[in-house]
Design a protein around this nucleic acid. Structure first.
Length: 646
DNA sequence: CTCTACCACTCCG
DNA sequence: ATAGGGGTAGAG
């Protein structure tokens, strides 16, 4: 999905950002990204048709985080599949079905590990799941909107219309639809990468005067996008080069000059490609979106604005004649594929019945895009101030009414979070309870080596070698329930895994100082490498190690945390670590000590990631030494493991 | 040198 | 046969 390599290409147009700097603004969210990630937490349950709302809770975590920074979220969902994509979707569905069958089969055979991996592949984000999240959001007065087609176009429109100043997504396509400020890689700490359309000329390496957005979009399409594969040998770099060389605005003429301009003699640009290029461009410009203020479907931009021929819009969707249906589709009441009615919520029939039925759930005080006043407020603001920043002003006004609102929101959140935590804890406890019930734990240390089934069970032969890790067995009690007690008796225990991980950490601690952190984002996120605790950790037991990292994390915490957001930290902690929350909300929010337990976890998480990054490297170094010289030094950094395994 | 093809890994608790 | 980002080798 999206444009391959676009995000690194846009490095010069991007900057690290944090939500705390967006207070008072509105953010449109590509909710599918969150749902999809959230599904991992309960893939097995979903695969077996068990009822779960873990994925909803996962998304709400993000939503609450946005609210905690005084940001109004608008959750945007995908609608119908475009005809051009229907086929691939169909294929995906079939492959998921197959995965499901295979998972069941494997379960029956008792190969839980493989079954688990299959189950992850077979879950889909259905509209019913999206609707559950939508319903949760309605109770909290959080805006949701289902795009007629792609959420990308809808979000770009919200951005262009000034309703949302930022967009949160993982899909680089957003840039092509004309979104101005896009946040990628947003994490639960509130950090992300901001890409701004107004800086695209920097990435393309041309002056602002010579740059036009069309050039950028055409470059991306040329490099290969969802609607059109690239010509062979053309990627972003070549496409960029070409778009800077030509001043020809008519692509029918310009495209023919590609071989000549790029010195690619054998390249052939046929008429079909040109026609498809025009269609792809039209799709990005004119896809249908839903205008919630006018309550009607519209094109992202009007055909006249671009002198586009109607015929090129065959992939841009079609107008839904029934405006009532279009509205309910946008509200989420209809299944976008079948148009079957699943709910009957309406913004005008202010659902006080619902609010009384759920009065313990706190609601946001943001103006809804579905309210008539929203339109007025926008118009007034737009009239007084032509700049798009007016929206920020508008919300600042709300902010003005009280810091009290802010603190109230925070109080609400603590309360709400506590409630969620309750539910989540519940599931956690039952989870753990089941796990304990499984007879494995006591016998684990004397467990015989993994059965042949297990060692064969890695579905990817190139995956990291884990034969010495006993973790290759299902830890999920609900999954285990399906298999024989005999098999579950073989389950090695988690403490074991933990110890191995701790060991890995300590091993890694030695290597740390030598390892270069490559990732720009990552290194930027941890500005202080803190070599000292790692050196100390070298020869410690895992408990000491854990203590060590805790204190070092505390130090980092202190250092990073110059003046402000004690509150932020508490909020983060409460949204980040579920188990701590209840006790924290009981204690005073301002005490920093209360927040500390959560931070080390985060720190550990990042260091775990580093382990993943660099452990292979260190392994390779040692191995290449033993391998001799039939491998070049360069290849020693490549996929060495493969040959070793062979 | 630039671009593509390919691999392993992480998404979640 | 998830998808998408990151890294490397190898082709033009």
């Amino acid at each position: 999905m999206g444009i391959t390599g676009l995000i690194p290409f846009l490095e010069k147009a991007s900057a690290k950002m944090h939500l705390k700097d967006l207070s008072g603004s509105t953010v449109a969210v590509d909710t599918y990204c969150w749902l999809h990630k959230g599904v991992f937490s309960c893939a097995d349950k979903l695969a077996r048709g068990e009822d779960t709302d873990l994925y909803v809770q996962y998304c709400l975590k993000y939503v609450l985080m946005l609210l905690s920074y005084n940001i109004k979220p608008i959750l945007v969902f995908d609608g119908q599949h475009l005809p051009a994509k229907a086929l691939t979707e169909q294929r995906r569905r079939e492959s998921r079905q197959q995965s499901k069958k295979r998972a069941m089969e494997l379960l029956r055979l008792g190969r839980t590990d493989e079954a688990r991996s299959q189950m992850r592949r077979c879950v889909d984000v259905t509209h019913e799941m999206a609707l559950r999240l939508i319903q949760e959001c309605r109770m909290r007065h959080i805006d949701c909107i289902v795009a007629p087609y792609e959420a990308d176009a809808q979000m770009a429109w919200l951005n262009k219309a000034g309703i949302a100043q930022y967009i949160v997504t993982e899909d680089s396509d957003l840039t092509l639809f004309g979104a101005q400020k896009i946040i990628f890689k947003l994490d639960l700490n509130g950090a992300g990468l901001l890409v701004e359309a107004e800086k695209f000329h920097l990435a393309m390496g041309c002056t602002k005067e010579r740059y036009r957005f069309d050039k950028f979009r055409r470059m991306c399409i040329l490099s290969g996008c969802d609607y059109l594969d690239s010509l062979p040998g053309i990627g972003l770099a070549k496409a960029c080069k070409f778009m800077l060389k030509t001043e020809q605005d008519d692509m029918r003429i310009a495209l023919k000059k590609i071989p000549q301009y790029l010195n690619m003699r054998n390249l052939e640009v046929d008429d079909a490609y040109i026609e498809n290029f025009m269609k792809a461009e039209a799709t990005f410009k004119h896809m249908y979106i839903y205008n919630p203020l006018e309550r009607r479907m519209e094109r992202l931009s009007a055909l006249e604005d671009h002198e586009t021929e109607e015929g090129h819009c065959s992939n841009a969707g079609s107008l839904l004649a029934d405006s009532e249906k279009a509205l309910h589709l946008a509200l989420g009441n209809l299944n976008p594929f079948t148009l079957k009615s699943l709910d009957n919520w309406h913004p005008d029939k202010a659902t006080d019945s619902k609010t009384t039925s759920a009065k313990h759930i706190k609601r946001t005080k943001h103006k809804s895009i579905w309210q008539a006043q929203f339109n007025n407020a926008q118009e007034v603001e737009l009239a007084t101030q032509p700049r798009p920043t007016t929206c920020a002003l508008f919300f600042k006004k709300v902010d003005f009414v009280g810091q009290t609102i802010q603190s109230e929101i925070e109080a609400n959140q603590r309360q709400e979070q506590a409630k969620h935590t309750e539910a989540e804890l519940f599931s956690l406890y039952s989870f753990k309870g089941k796990r304990k019930r499984s007879p494995s734990r006591s016998s684990s240390n004397s467990t015989p080596p993994p059965s042949p089934v297990q060692s064969k069970s890695r579905h990817n032969p190139f995956a990291r070698e884990t034969t010495q890790l006993p973790s290759a067995v299902c830890e999920n009690a609900s999954l285990l329930r399906l298999v024989s007690p005999l098999r579950s008796a073989e389950e090695p225990v988690r403490p074991e895994t933990k110890r191995v991980n701790a060991l890995k950490r300590s091993i890694f601690a030695e290597e740390q100082p030598q390892v270069e952190v490559r990732s720009r984002f990552f290194s930027a996120q941890t500005p202080e490498p803190h070599p000292e605790p790692k050196v100390v950790a070298e020869k410690k037991t895992q408990q000491e190690l854990e203590l060590e990292s805790t204190t070092s994390a505390a130090a980092v915490n202190d250092a990073n945390n110059n003046n402000h957001n004690d509150d932020d930290i508490v909020l983060l902690a409460s949204s980040g670590s579920d188990e701590d929350t209840s006790s924290q909300s009981a204690t005073l929010p301002s005490s920093q000590e209360a927040a500390l337990p959560a931070k080390p976890q985060l720190k550990l998480a990042t260091s775990a990631r580093r382990v993943g990054l660099s452990k292979p490297k260190t392994k390779k170094k040692t191995k290449s030494a033993s391998l001799g010289d039939n491998q070049t030094k360069l290849s020693a950094f490549g996929f060495q493991k493969r040959s070793v395994l062979k």
